[in-house]
């Protein structure tokens, strides 16, 4: 749930989602769910000419499983906190494994 928790803090930030089919969409992150499905608002497609089917689209719901990268705004990430969150996650998983 670490990434779920993490992405929740990026709501209302501009992100770029790169999908596994190379399509990149930039937009305002509106919501994320436990499957890391992502809802973007006010989107624009990075290579618009190549993807005419998205020309009239204003917001998208992206299936989490097809996301390759998420480009984040660096200043919206608390690295120290994220490190600790990661440690906690790792510890929790280690406990579960026991």
């Amino acid at each position: 749930m670490l990434f779920f928790s993490f992405f929740k803090t990026l709501v209302d930030h501009e992100v770029t989602i790169e999908l596994k089919n190379d399509l990149s969409i930039r937009g305002t992150l509106k919501s994320v769910d436990q499957f890391l499905n992502i809802k973007l608002d006010d989107i624009h497609v990075v290579d618009e000419v190549k993807y005419p089917h998205l020309s009239a689209v204003k917001n998208v719901f992206i299936r989490g499983s097809v996301v390759r990268y998420v480009h984040l705004p660096a200043n919206a990430v608390d690295t120290a906190l994220l490190e600790d969150a990661t440690r906690r996650e790792a510890a929790a998983q280690a406990n579960k494994a026991k």
Binding site: M1, S5, F6, T9, D78, L81, A85, R88, A92
Partner: peptide, 18 residues
């Protein structure tokens, strides 16, 4: 899924608190 709600959602909770 989250037995320890706080631990699972640690980043979000603390980030928001800050």
């Amino acid at each position: 899924v989250n037995e320890d709600q706080f631990n699972e959602d640690f980043y979000y909770q603390v980030y928001m608190a800050i």
